[in-house]
């Protein structure tokens, strides 16, 4: 019997670092401009990881010139070339949506004390 899960593993699951909500990461996204292809980094805090199998995705939030920007990436997206884990954060929740209502220093995530 054919299992639908086989499809999920078929999309080459890149070996990404194991990051969690609260971590600060840099996602390298492939973008196509005309016929040229280049990489664009998106750096911010992971505020949510949701879904399972092939529909698993994560949300990255950053403050760009005073405006909050969020991007949702599927884990299996072929557009993602690389993910760098820059800083591990110390948080008590799985979904950090409360950060949207905070600004300035209050919106800062504490680093994990090793």
């Amino acid at each position: 019997m054919f299992s639908l899960n086989e499809l999920a593993t078929e999309g080459q699951r890149n070996q990404f670092p194991n990051f969690k909500p609260g971590d600060h990461i840099k996602v390298f996204v492939k973008i196509i401009e005309g016929d040229k292809e280049r990489e664009q980094p998106f750096e911010g805090d992971v505020i949510s990881i949701r879904g399972s199998r092939e529909s698993r995705s994560f949300t990255v939030r950053k403050i760009s010139s005073g405006v909050g920007v969020e991007r949702i990436f599927p884990f299996n997206s072929p557009k993602i070339t690389k993910i760098e884990l820059l800083k591990e954060g110390s948080v008590r929740r799985a979904k950090l949506y409360y950060l949207r209502n905070l600004s300035g220093k209050a919106a800062k995530i504490k680093s994990k004390v090793k």
Binding site: L4, A8, G11, P78, K79
Partner: peptide
């Protein structure tokens, strides 16, 4: 009909698909 899933097309966008045993 086997069920639904999703795949990525050449542009890298996620596309909903139905798997059918033919």
């Amino acid at each position: 009909k086997l069920g639904m899933s999703s795949v990525y097309n050449e542009a890298g966008n996620r596309v909903p698909v139905t798997a059918i045993e033919v």
